[in-house]
Design a protein around this nucleic acid. Structure first.
Length: 600
DNA sequence: TAGTACAGCGCC
DNA sequence: AGGGCGCTGTACTA
């Protein structure tokens, strides 16, 4: 299957259907609910030719498209989280969309386009300016489903067709190569938004009893509100005794720091890594206290009450929520679920999880985008860090790992700085790319990811003779810091693009699978963590799904980096609970996604 | 009382 | 070590 949803490089001939919700209706799929405007986009000018609007029910949405023999039109709407939630609740699955807000954010920051039309209304200045501001603002309360169609809140009626046309025109101010990449990026970002809402709708099967047993084991019984759990209070008491500080509140860093200093521990911060430099009988219990306190406050009973219902944990993702293009999370801590509680994610009866993560994704993306042949070669057929060590570039796997992290993050000390010269020599092309990105950032310039997402403008600050030494030093530090950011931006952001392409491929293939068996028991993507996905699937499809995950990784690499020899192996694990493929399947996981998978 | 800054730690 | 986040409690400001 060619992944139509991903190959958004060209929009020639694509039919766009602009969709707006027009009536709350009810859950009845036959009730009229959306106004749909079929459009064609002129490939040269970007002009949008709109047909007459049609009013559709949810049931119509699918049938109508089929009747018109349109294969997978691109649905266009202001906000995926508003319109798609509405459609999903009525059983409408959408193959691909164009999220106007997410796409506008990409285009309006992109270095390679002239986006002035987003800021300069051509006519009807007052009204026009308001509408332009609407597009850049947050989703208005009135558009959210909980208060949908509450007219009192909406002062501006956004014109989705007009916004689509603005975006298509802006896109065409980019050179041909960047136009295709940005177009692709918008397609990926929009598809990601679909996936994020589908994940929310499905949820991760979550075993409350298991989670509570885990809490009881470590913290004791659930305490009254505002009271420390017994086990935590016991550790606090022990700390007060060991530090000879009867009034100590270990939750107060200030209080704690004072107590530590009084006890003769010369630290200036109470952070875990600083304390590990010292020896004192209180430090082990303190680390234990911090661990338990975190578990209790962030992922304890209150978390369960708020985020798990009907046996499902529903992660709230915000695609494009991070400057680099990574997804963010909004409540529930979807991107910070501690390993310690992941075991509470348990597959339902007759189901299991396919857990997959991409091995050493960022270095591989760096190798591919820079075209560094040596780095690509180091990633062939196995553990990249081990192979770098084996090749004699550095003495050990650890050196290779920290060297790579230093290259991508801008490490200046320790092992990462120490092996920099060897890395420069062994991987000149890749190192030149990240170091060039760093220099651009240091000068206050902007860099872009592989698909053209652009870093925020840096702060340009020129030296001045009147500066004293401190000011000059501060400016140098800021400049270096921004350089580390832009250095990492190109890698982290491009890796996020790979991850989205991977997930979109997986989604379309899983959908193909379920077409053959249109029952409720289809495999679903339920969780995502930067370079890792969790799929809930009927047991009998687990191996098929595992293969889908591997094939999709290969396809994502080929789609993003055509002709590149860089491999993107994934570790795949089939398990009834959410455990870590990195830990559980050393060796085993690789044999799933092994060399045979990458053979021509 | 409400909002915000910061420290600290969870994840990648 | 170095990049990106979200969430929590404490401590502080308005």
């Amino acid at each position: 299957m060619r992944a139509a949803g991903v190959s958004g490089g060209s929009d020639n001939g694509v039919v766009y259907i602009v969709v707006e919700l027009m009536s709350a209706g009810d859950a009845d799929p036959s009730a009229p609910c959306v106004r749909a405007v079929p459009c064609q986009v002129d490939p040269v000018s970007g002009q949008v030719h709109a047909d007459a609007p049609v009013v559709l029910s949810a049931a119509d949405c699918v049938a109508w498209v089929t009747d018109r023999e349109i294969d997978r039109p691109r649905w266009v709407w202001a906000d995926t989280s508003v319109v798609y939630d509405f459609l999903l609740a009525r059983g409408v699955w959408v193959a691909k969309c164009h999220d106007l807000r997410l796409s506008r954010a990409i285009l309006s920051r992109a270095a390679w386009v002239d986006s002035s039309v987003f800021r300069a209304p051509s006519s009807q200045a007052e009204q026009g300016a308001q509408e332009l501001a609407w597009w850049d603002g947050p989703t208005p309360v009135a558009a959210r489903q909980d208060v949908l169609f509450d007219e009192s809140h909406s002062e501006v009626t956004p014109d989705c067709v007009a916004e689509l046309e603005r975006q298509m025109r802006v896109l065409r101010t980019a050179g041909n190569g960047w136009r295709q990449r940005l177009s692709f990026l918008m397609a990926l970002e929009s598809a990601g938004a679909l996936i994020a809402r589908e994940m929310y709708a499905v949820g991760v099967p979550w075993d409350r009893d298991h989670h509570e047993a885990l809490l009881r084991e470590q913290l004791g019984e659930r305490p009254a509100v505002g009271v420390r759990p017994a086990a935590l209070e016991a550790v606090a008491q022990e700390l007060r005794r060991l530090l000879d500080a009867p009034e100590l509140n270990p939750d107060s860093p200030k209080d704690l720091l004072r107590a530590l200093n009084s006890a003769g521990i010369p630290v200036t911060t109470t952070s875990k890594w600083a304390l590990r430099e010292h020896r004192h009988p209180a430090l082990a219990p303190l680390e234990r206290y911090k661990h338990l306190a975190r578990l209790w406050t962030a992922h304890g009973w209150a978390w369960l009450d708020e985020w798990v219902s009907d046996g499902r944990y529903r992660p709230v993702y915000t695609p494009g929520g991070v400057v680099t293009g990574r997804w963010g999370a909004d409540g529930g801590g979807a991107l910070q679920l501690p390993r310690a509680i992941r075991g509470a994610a348990r597959a339902g009866d007759g189901f299991t999880f396919v857990i997959a993560d991409a091995s050493q994704l960022e270095p591989r993306v760096l190798a591919a985008m820079s075209g560094d042949a040596a780095m690509a070669e180091a990633g062939r057929g196995g553990d990249m860090y081990q192979r770098i060590a084996d090749a004699g570039v550095v003495p050990s796997r650890e050196h290779a790992k920290y060297g790579m992290l230093g290259a991508m993050y801008g490490g200046t000390t320790g092992v990462s700085a120490q092996v920099l010269p060897q890395f420069r020599q062994a991987f000149p092309t890749a190192m030149a790319m990240v170091e060039s990105a760093a220099r651009v950032g240091e000068r206050g310039g902007q860099v872009t990811t592989w698909l053209g997402r652009t870093s925020p403008p840096g702060v340009v600050s020129h030296p001045d003779e009147s500066d004293d030494a401190d000011v000059a030093r501060e400016r140098r530090l800021r400049s270096r810091s921004y350089g580390r950011f832009t250095r990492n931006f190109i890698v982290q952001g491009s890796a996020a693009e790979w991850a989205m392409a991977w997930m979109v491929e997986i989604r379309l293939r899983l959908h193909q699978l379920s077409l053959g068996d249109p029952t409720l028991s289809a495999p679903s993507l339920v969780f995502f963590l930067h370079d890792e996905v969790l799929i809930h699937t009927p047991v009998e499809w687990a191996e098929t799904v595992a293969e889908v995950v591997r094939v999709s990784a290969r396809q994502a690499g080929e789609t993003l980096f055509p002709g590149s020899v860089v491999e993107f192996p994934v570790k795949v694990l089939v398990n009834d609970s959410y455990t870590d493929p990195k830990v559980v399947s050393q060796g085993v996981g690789e044999s799933h996604g092994d060399l045979a998978d990458h053979a021509p």
